[in-house]
Design a protein around this nucleic acid. Structure first.
Length: 435
RNA sequence: CGGGGCGUGGCGCAGUCUGGUAGCGCACCUGCUUUGGGAGCAGGGGGUCGGAGGUUCAAAUCCUCUCGCCCCGACCA
């Protein structure tokens, strides 16, 4: 993509409404624009990142055998009246009436809809287990949206729902999600720490929040330093195998959010305790027959008896992750994207646009990268070097290649990783480095 | 929802207390000079001061109402 043609309205100054780094940087880098309180429009570069994250989530969901569906954003009130949540949910739920004065709502979550789909379509235990996911928009009318995309009212979310014949099978479904989440977040360059969460009326240990550490995170977290020795990406996972040992391993180390942590009775040594901040990016939850009960979702078991299905639901805040990743990866100059979610892998800076030599080398680099399938942003504008360097640092592409008249004469370009040192190399080796 | 704050060109702000017909920096346009870390000079365009009422000879400024946004707290992917 040529910068001169790319819609990326960057800002030198920070709009006054933005307080935390990710919000400021997303506005400054031209990734998003606020449309209303807690409601954002995604501009080309922000949308690229959102899609990268979405794709990682999708791949990891698919790897577990979950199947992607797409449910409506607008839902009929009847289903919620049936589950009993229509009155419980309160003002966070955006309620709408259509022209016939029928009560509708903009879905804050989709348990009712999937349960409805399921009960109308599945009759036998032979069709279980089942796990359906979707990635799309939800709306919760937060009293106080803030932190930009990290706590919006409208947000992009992956949510999925498991259906099992019994509690034991439901635990297997839960474990799959648990392990899958570890990989999903790790692939985005984040350190995910599962923390036991309140599992409500069901009780037990079947609810976890996934927290990623970030200095500017919303809540204080306490955990064992051994967390940093673990690497989810090194896990060889067979989703058909028993995952309980992996889950056990990832829950035996201490980890607690502010609310649960008790300094007096902390089970681990002070030296071993890491104190930091974190952002909740995922939540998995087993809730048994809560909805199958109220909404009559049953199947025949192996003896022909009607049995309520055991369910769980699992969420990942996809749009929140964009902010969370920036919170965890930035410096004073701007964003530092992990390669897996970067909008472009590399930026090419033409330090003397219009100079025949510079133009030629830049084109050669750009073509070379493009042919190799590497996304590059080529800053071909007639701007001063400082402007280009500053913007490239701001938008945080993992690699920068600077092409100037001096180097071109000597047959070299300068390559550096965002935040790293510059290195003079030949055009060929620059290309080799990135392809 | 309780408490606080702010709405003035695209962005950041001054002007409001003490009414007199809107200003600065950045960005934008033109020209020249510059050209390796957000250039310099000159010229130029753009705002009925969030909105509606009211007071006044006169309102960004005073009064009333209203809408929007932000921050702290309680709540959440």
């Amino acid at each position: 993509m040529r910068r001169s043609k790319y819609f990326m309205p960057t800002l030198k100054e920070t709009p006054s409404e933005a307080q935390i780094p990710s919000h400021r940087l997303m506005l400054r880098a031209g990734m998003v624009r606020q449309t209303a309180a807690g409601i954002y429009s995604w501009l080309p570069m922000g949308y690229r990142v959102l899609r990268k994250i979405e794709q990682i989530v999708r791949e990891e969901m698919d790897a577990t055998g979950a199947q992607e569906i797409l449910m409506p954003t607008i839902q009929p009130a009847e289903l919620w009246q049936e589950s009993g949540r229509y009155d419980d949910y309160g003002k966070e739920m955006l309620r709408i009436n259509d022209r016939h004065d029928r009560a509708l709502l903009y879905g804050p979550t989709h348990e009712e809809i999937v349960t409805d789909i399921f009960r109308n379509s599945v009759r036998s235990y032979r069709d279980l287990p089942q796990n359906l996911y979707q990635i799309h928009w939800k709306f919760r009318d937060e009293v106080r949206p803030r932190f930009g995309v990290m706590r919006g009212r409208e947000f992009f979310m992956k949510d999925n729902y498991s259906f099992d014949i019994d509690a034991e099978s439901a635990r297997r479904s839960y474990n799959k999600m648990f392990v899958s989440y570890l990989r999903t977040f790790a692939r985005m360059g984040l350190t995910p720490i599962p923390m036991q969460a309140d599992s409500g009326a069901i009780g037990g240990d079947m609810s976890h929040e996934f927290i990623v550490l970030a200095d500017t995170g919303e809540s204080a977290v306490y955990c064992d330093r051994d967390w940093f020795k673990t690497d989810p990406l090194s896990l060889e996972i067979d989703f058909d195998a028993d995952l309980q040992p992996i889950v056990d391993r990832w829950t035996e180390l201490y980890a607690a959010t502010d609310e649960k942590h008790d300094a007096e009775n902390c089970p681990i040594d002070e030296k071993q305790l890491y104190t930091g901040r974190g952002i909740e990016v995922g939540h998995i939850f087993y809730f048994g027959t809560k909805y199958s009960d109220s909404m009559g979702a049953t199947v025949s078991d192996s003896e022909g008896k009607e049995t309520k299905v055991e369910m769980g639901s699992y969420g990942i805040g996809v749009s929140r992750l964009v902010g969370a990743i920036i919170e965890a990866n930035h410096d004073d100059d701007g964003i530092i994207w992990p390669e897996s979610v970067a909008p472009f892998k590399a930026g090419i800076i033409n330090l003397r646009a219009g100079d025949e030599g510079c133009d030629g080398v830049c084109q050669q680099l750009y073509d070379g990268l493009t042919e190799a399938g590497v996304d590059a942003l080529y800053d071909d504008r007639d701007e001063r070097a400082g402007v280009k360097f500053a913007e490239m640092d701001l938008i945080g592409l993992p690699w920068q290649i600077a092409v100037g008249p001096r180097g071109v004469k000597a047959g070299t370009v300068e390559i550096k990783q965002r935040g790293g040192e510059r290195e003079e190399v030949s055009v060929e080796s620059a290309l080799a480095r990135l392809t």
